[in-house]
């Protein structure tokens, strides 16, 4: 099968890639770019572990073909930490004990980031809506909500 040429920007770095016609964005990130922070939990868009940000929107990278996002800007969990240190969301997740096994964490962080990027002062209900597509079996969600609230406060300042 013919490969397709695409160009995507991931965490600020541009990549010219050849992708297969069935290659999902999740596959490209994990297998071609070796960025394994994005997780595969269900492959059908139900768990949100593979959530990344594509052109400012949280999407399930298991439900998008890479060829569909040619030219897009993508942010993954690997893009959060910068030279100046951890992102306020990462700090808040650590501070509020919003992590247990950590498998849902990258997707949670991406959904939360997409929210705060467009809505820096979300209500609790808005946080829940932003994270309703991210399943977590360990934490019971409360400390994740606490963390997003904390990040919103710190980041807003």
């Amino acid at each position: 099968m013919a490969k397709l040429d695409v160009e995507i920007t991931v965490n600020g770095a541009r990549h010219k890639l050849e992708v297969g016609s069935q290659e999902r964005l999740l596959d490209t990130l994990r297998e071609q770019l070796k960025m394994t922070g994005t997780k595969e939990g269900c492959s059908v868009g139900e768990c949100g572990a593979c959530t990344v940000i594509v052109d400012d929107q949280a999407v399930n990278s298991c439900l998008v073909l890479t060829a569909q996002v040619d030219g897009s800007e993508i942010i993954t969990v690997e893009g959060l930490e910068s030279k100046s240190g951890l992102h306020p969301l990462q700090k808040a997740f650590i501070e509020k004990q919003a992590i247990q096994c950590g498998f849902c964490t990258p997707g949670m962080l991406m959904s939360a980031l997409a929210l705060l990027n467009t809505n820096p002062t979300p209500t609790k209900e808005e946080i829940k809506t932003a994270l309703e597509g991210n399943l977590c079996r360990c934490t019971g969600y409360q400390q994740i909500i606490d963390a997003v609230e904390m990040a919103a406060e710190e980041w807003g300042v």
Partner: peptide, 9 residues
């Protein structure tokens, strides 16, 4: 319908 991620697509 779905979740935020689903509704975005």
């Amino acid at each position: 319908i779905g979740s935020t991620q689903i509704r975005n697509r």
